[in-house]
Design a protein around this nucleic acid. Structure first.
Lengths: 247, 247
DNA sequence: GTCAAAACAGTTGTCTGACAACCAGACATA
DNA sequence: TATGTCTGGTTGTCAGACAACTGTTTTGAC
């Protein structure tokens, strides 16, 4: 049932207060107003300055502490930590506003996914191989329907294919990192991906790229898998970046 | 001034309440007691069950929300999110209790660092190359002092060498990921690293491994850099895992 | 009986005030 | 000098209240 409502995005509600406070503090740290080792103003003082309650400030600081950006000591205060102590890898949505950052993110994705493929070539079980071939068949089926048909389905089955491959590596960290990167990209660039898929990400050449990867996995050839995966994601990134409407 | 106090470690203070509550909830999610889409008990109810104040529960939930593990809607409740929505990569200290997990983490480190090296071979500037050679010289100097002397210094300069290389890639995500992985490893395995460095991580062979990497960077040979880095970290991981006292 | 508006109960988000635990430094004391 | 004590300040936790919001139920007009 076609519905005009699909064109209306959610209005951006005022974000949660603690998130705002947290990013304000992060901002102060990134702009060097607050340097490693410096003490943050007291929670009372911050609450006064931001015009919020202390509970809000506390929640904000607890987020930063969770990421290892600040350390707090009871009875003393909260201190900006050594940046090397950051214990989390997180991709901020703001990064998707700069073309350069997106290209770098796609580079990282290429490298990590290629590493996962290489491992998978060595570690895969027969059952996993069956799943992978099955998923590849789904990609192929969607591809045969033409560029515009089953668009989302095609993109999703492609994503699933490479997630399956990462899982076949048997390395949970690779699984987590690739999934986290993919999730972030999809959340922020989904529309560009779809447009791209409708224009250039289909047809025999693209299918040949996928096949090269899967064939290497079948042959248990780690180096070939790495190369094929690298080549596939490099080309995909290149095609995406070449689009006129890409940022 | 030798001081007996050096034998006294910090006593482990009781962790913060919100952290405990958060990991209890994460536990419930990982053991499938709470499945994606399920609603968490209300904050009141959780506070009652855990025997803490609601502010503590709120702080805990805000951490999970920050990682994309739960989503909360005012007036309704907090819900376990789709695991694919997790927006962070984080290595829990608990992972260092299982040998298998550590090996996997070292695998990831190898792959990512190799990717960074390959990029660095192409993107490095002359100034960065000078810094890298300078750092390599420091490693070499520390190495010449023998296995036991300047132990920490040698390990640290090695870490610095590969951090410099990652920075020379010009890709901030590679810098962040490698640094985050390295930080976590050092925070949890520092002592093993030091013991290992005193026993096997020194001498001409190890220096040759470093030189192979740097030479590839000088030659701007991406594939050689990838291979040399991979080889260096794979061997280091192997030597570490071969130790008797390693878990 | 139908349907929309209004009231309601329940939940999260924020605010306020209080007290406990803790710390650094000043001060007193031996 | 070394040790104990006090004091003000800070973070950690608690308790209670209200605001904002949601899903459901009730009410009332037709």
């Amino acid at each position: 049932m076609p519905d005009a409502a699909q064109f209306f995005d959610r209005i951006d509600r005022p974000a949660r207060l603690p998130d705002g406070v947290a990013s304000a503090i992060i901002d102060a740290i990134e702009t060097r107003q607050l340097q490693p080792g410096d003490r943050l103003p007291t929670e009372m003082e911050l609450a006064r300055r931001f015009g919020v309650a202390r509970t809000v400030v506390r929640e904000a600081i607890s987020l930063l502490r969770y990421d290892g950006i600040v350390q707090s000591r009871r009875g003393v205060g909260a201190f900006v930590a050594d940046p090397a102590q950051k214990s989390t890898f997180r991709i901020s949505p703001a990064c998707f506003e700069k073309r350069k950052r997106i290209v770098q993110l796609l580079e990282l994705r290429t490298g990590v996914q290629a590493g996962a493929s290489a491992l998978a070539a060595e570690m895969r079980t027969e059952a996993e191989m069956r799943d992978i071939r099955q998923t590849l068949a789904e990609v192929e089926a969607a591809d045969r329907l033409g560029p515009a048909a089953a668009l989302e389905q095609r993109v999703d089955s492609e994503l699933l294919l490479y997630r399956r491959i990462a899982e076949a590596s048997g390395n949970e960290y690779y699984v987590e990192v690739t999934r986290m990167i993919e999730t972030t990209i999809q959340n922020n660039l989904r529309s560009a991906f779809l447009k791209n898929a409708a224009n250039s990400e289909f047809g025999p050449q693209i299918m040949a790229e996928h096949h090269a990867v899967v064939d290497a996995l079948i042959a248990r050839d780690a180096e070939a898998a790495r190369l094929a995966t690298r080549s596939r994601f490099e080309r995909a990134a290149h095609r995406l970046a070449a689009r006129q409407d890409f940022l």
